[in-house]
């Protein structure tokens, strides 16, 4: 396959970036998208040019490191996967592919396609945990039965990989899906209910401080989420927050 790539290049956080065009051949349809970028980078290095910086790590769709807005969609045109799981067979010979970093005020660009997503960490730090110590001297795990349905729902909320696709896809760059997934996980479990009010208030407060946009309920986040995190979580957070605010 031969492809034309239009890639955002930006030297560092302060520099002004621009789109650059690269041509690449010898792309196999069995390659993953990131392997295609590896090939591009190796050729750039051999030509004495600077390779394109992009975030990636586990390359199996679970660490949430890879990002990229590919042809206008986070993680590209396929559904239910991350960029590292996107394969070139989804593209056609001769295609032009536009590759940009995730864009949000709360995700400043560090270099090329790499963005800083620590705002997500700070939201978690504000209250995304259950305040138990780590002594292990807690009660026996089975002394607290949890309805399977609740445990499963909490699990599905907890499968969020924190990649930021929800923010990237949202026309408002809102972090509601991310924040609500964590709030939901904890709110659904009896262990987490105890400090549910403080948690939701603190996490939303931090989310606002980070400069994310508001939720317009367009549903783009749910569709682009590689893990299919449900909008139900956003509603649950709305509910939890309302409860906590009127208390």
């Amino acid at each position: 396959m031969k492809l034309t790539l239009k890639i955002w290049r930006q030297k560092n956080a302060k520099a002004k970036g621009s789109m650059q065009t690269y041509n690449i051949s010898d792309v196999s349809p069995d390659m993953s998208f990131l392997e295609m970028l590896d090939v591009l980078n190796d050729s750039l290095i051999e030509k004495g040019e600077e390779p394109v910086e992009f975030d990636h790590d586990c390359r199996e769709g679970i660490c949430g490191t890879c990002s990229l807005q590919i042809n206008g969609e986070p993680h590209g045109p396929d559904r239910g996967i991350t960029t590292c799981q996107l394969h070139m067979r989804k593209f056609k010979d001769g295609d032009t592919i536009v590759i940009e970093p995730f864009r949000a005020a709360a995700f400043p660009v560090i270099k090329d396609l790499v963005v800083d997503r620590n705002s997500f960490d700070r939201i978690q730090q504000a209250g995304g945990y259950i305040s138990v110590n780590t002594s292990g001297n807690t009660q026996d795990a089975n002394s607290l039965p949890i309805p399977k349905e609740d445990a499963d729902m909490a699990f599905y909320a907890a499968t969020c990989i924190g990649c930021g696709a929800c923010v990237a896809a949202c026309k408002n760059a809102s972090a509601m899906l991310f924040t609500s997934a964590k709030v939901s996980q904890m709110a659904l479990l009896p262990q987490g209910k105890i400090e549910a009010s403080e948690r939701v208030l603190a996490m939303v407060d931090q989310m606002d401080k980070e400069g994310f946009g508001n939720c317009t309920n367009t549903g783009a986040c749910e569709i682009e989420c590689p893990k299919g995190i449900s909008l139900e979580n956003i509603a649950r957070m709305n509910r939890e927050y309302l409860k906590a605010s009127v208390k």
Binding site: Y129, I130, V132, T134, S135, G136, N137, T138, Q139, D140, A141, N142, L144, P145, I146, P147, K148, A151, D152, A154, F155, A158, Q185, M186, L189, Q191, G192
Partner: peptide, 22 residues
């Protein structure tokens, strides 16, 4: 065994049976 107790207390959503146990 402590690890499991600890993780459940932290809200790790392990798989459960219909009776609510792990």
């Amino acid at each position: 065994a402590n690890i499991i107790d600890q993780c459940v207390a932290q809200g790790v959503p392990f798989a459960r049976e219909y009776g609510g146990l792990l």
